[in-house]
């Protein structure tokens, strides 16, 4: 059929082709395996910092909302509290899952807010993130009665949302991760809407937002 020589060349070409294919597969496999970990946000990334810090920020909102939910006298406040508690707890779960997916710990090696430029200066004197309630304010909320529960919750949560929105804005400045941006943008839209709602409720209840 073929001459021996021709056949040998053919065979060698085939073998080389096979080798190339194998190497190409190896490289492709390696690259495919590695790429997710290269592309995933790192330990000091804004995304990881946001996921960690916003989880803590959210957790306090959940605590305040759940504290108020059974005691609010105003129906709109009670509904808002319920909505905030469920929504933010769910978002905590999403953010914690991100960290797991990125092979990162729930706790970073850097202080909170270090992912933001000048983040350390954003902390309150108590070392709290922007908008968070102090221990004393939480106690006050716990001890409040009647309509005061509704007012105090709206005041504290309004400020809490504003602090959260500030952190979200920083994330949106820094991050190109679409999933993270999407959730952050959703949080912002939602919380901005609720800020307006709190203002409306406060004025209906004859109260003012907190000064700071």
């Amino acid at each position: 059929m073929f001459s021996g020589l021709f056949a040998t060349q053919r065979r060698r070409a085939t073998a080389i082709g096979a080798l190339v294919a194998v190497f190409a597969l190896l490289i492709g496999f390696g690259a495919g395996w590695l790429t997710p970990s290269l592309r995933a946000p790192g330990d000091n990334s804004p995304e990881a910092g946001f996921a960690r810090d916003m989880s803590t920020h959210h957790a306090q909102a959940v605590t305040m909302a759940m504290t108020v939910y059974p005691r609010a006298t105003d129906t709109e406040v009670r509904q808002l509290a319920y909505d905030i508690a469920l929504t933010q707890q769910s978002q905590i779960g999403i953010m914690q899952t991100w960290l797991k997916d990125w092979h990162l710990q729930p706790t970073g090696t850097r202080p909170k807010m270090a992912w933001m430029p000048n983040g350390a200066r954003e902390l309150t004197p108590d070392g709290l993130m922007p908008g968070m309630a102090t221990d004393a304010q939480l106690q006050e909320l716990d001890a409040a009665k009647g309509k005061q529960v509704d007012i105090l919750f709206c005041q504290l949560m309004l400020r809490h949302h504003l602090g959260g929105i500030h952190m979200i804005d920083e994330l949106l400045q820094l991050s190109h991760d679409q999933d993270v941006r999407d959730l952050a943008q959703g949080m912002k839209n939602n919380q901005q809407g609720e800020v307006v709602q709190f203002q409306t409720i406060l004025s209906r209840l004859g109260a003012q937002p907190l000064s700071s």
Binding site: V62, M66, T67, Y69, P70, Q96, T107, G108, T109
Partner: peptide, 22 residues
């Protein structure tokens, strides 16, 4: 210690530290 065990050591994944004063 804090980095390795905080949250990770939970026996009840997803359980909170606050929730409500009840």
């Amino acid at each position: 210690f804090i980095q390795d065990l905080r949250v990770n050591a939970s026996m009840e994944t997803g359980a909170t530290c606050g929730q409500d004063s009840q």
